[in-house]
Write a protein that binds this DNA or RNA. Structure first.
Length: 189
DNA sequence: TGCCCGATTAACT
DNA sequence: GTTAATCGGGCAA
C-alpha cells in the first residue's frame, strides 16, 4: 500500500472515514470524488462486523485497503473500504460520489438521470460503477480499482448516519462541505 | 428448517 | 409521506 493510503486507512475507522472524503474512486476508469462516507467500527451494533466474522463479512476482517461488498435489502449492492489493523473488522461505507469519470457509462447503467443522482446513495454508487458481490475482497490499489488522493485541502462536515436502526444517533457520517452530490443534505443547523 | 429483518431505492398517494 | 420489491444472514425451534 502506498504510504499516502496507509496513513489514511491504517488508523481508526473514525479517522479513516472523514479522511477518505475528497479522494477519487475509480472502477474500470469510471467513478468520481468521494463526497459522503460513514464509519462502521467492530464494536458498533450497527456494523456487520459486530457479531463477529461470518461468510458474508469476512472481508471486513482482512487487511485494510480492500473492498467489502454486500447485498442490501436483497436488491442493492453496497461498497465499503476496509480499514484499521488486519482482523479488526471495521470499514467505511461509501455513500456518494461526485461523478467525474465515465459519465456516459454511468448513465448507461443507471438510465437517463440527473448527474447529481448518478452516485448519490450507496446502492446507486455501486450500480453506476458496475460494482457487485463478485468484486468483494478486491484491493483498492489494483486494477480495475483505483483510489487517488485529493489535490488540495478538503473541508469535511459531520452528521448522523442514515437508514440504520441501531446506534443511529452516533455522528459517524461525513460529507464534503457544501457538495450537492450527497445522498441527503445535512439537517438544518 | 423456517421466520424475520435490514448500512435502500423508486414509484406510488 | 408511504410502501413494495427481494434475498441472504442470524437466530429460534
Amino acid at each position: 500500500m502506498t504510504p499516502e493510503l496507509e496513513q489514511v486507512l491504517g488508523c481508526s475507522v473514525h479517522e479513516a472515514a472523514p479522511a477518505l472524503i475528497g479522494w477519487t474512486l475509480l472502477f474500470d476508469g469510471v467513478g468520481g470524488v468521494i463526497v459522503e462516507t460513514e464509519a462502521y467500527a467492530q464494536d458498533d451494533p450497527a456494523s456487520h462486523a459486530f457479531p463477529g466474522p461470518t461468510s458474508r463479512n469476512g472481508t471486513m476482517f482482512g487487511p485494510a485497503g480492500r473492498l467489502y461488498v454486500y447485498r442490501s435489502y436483497g436488491i442493492h449492492w453496497c461498497a465499503n473500504v476496509v480499514c484499521g489493523p488486519e482482523g479488526f473488522g471495521s470499514g467505511v461505507l461509501l455513500r456518494a460520489l461526485e461523478p467525474t469519470h465515465g459519465l456516459e457509462e454511468m448513465r448507461r447503467r443507471r438510465g437517463a438521470v440527473d448527474e447529481r443522482l448518478l452516485c448519490s446513495g450507496p446502492g446507486r454508487l455501486t450500480q453506476a460503477l458496475g460494482i457487485t458481490g463478485e468484486h468483494d475482497g478486491l484491493s483498492l490499489e489494483d486494477p480495475p480499482l483505483a483510489l487517488l488522493a485529493p489535490a488540495g485541502p478538503v473541508e469535511v462536515e459531520t452528521g448522523t448516519r442514515i437508514g440504520i436502526t441501531k446506534a443511529g444517533e452516533m455522528p459517524w457520517r461525513y460529507l464534503l462541505s457544501g457538495s450537492p452530490f450527497v445522498s441527503r443534505p445535512l439537517p438544518r443547523a
